[in-house]
Amino acid sequence: MDESVRNLNEGVMGWAKFYRKGWNYFAFAMHRFSGLVIVFYLYLHLFVLSHLLSGPVTYNELVKTVTFGPFDSFLVLDVLLALVIFYHGANGTRLALNEFGIGLQKNKAMFIVFEAIAMVILGVFLYYAYMFIGAS
């Protein structure tokens, strides 16, 4: 590529620059970010679960070594993971509908409504998850 073109092409890092841009760009940038977090979690999840192949002792040892502090650190990360999954799912549903031409003229309203519904469902999910942990 020509040197001057390379200087002006922001590349993938440019995706993260949502300062002074519209709400749609914010939705886009957060969709990328949440997608990356979910992919990272998938591999982390498989890595942790793969220790089950070595037996319950090895698996429990691994879980103990990464769990520390007054709160269960994995639990805090799980809440953040649920947040990005719910965000990604709601925005992804909106985008899929928009691609079919559904709600295209009202896509900002759709974004707000879908995210609001996702956050309410997230709240319900976290409440029942908390009850489940409290009961165990």
Binding site: K21, Y25, F28, N98, G101, L104
Partner: peptide, 24 residues
Amino acid sequence: HFAGECTEVCPKGVNPSFAIQKLR
């Protein structure tokens, strides 16, 4: 990916992001 910045900056109010979604 429907970032919508094309529509934000268009000086003539053309709305390219909508046109692309209609194409899709």
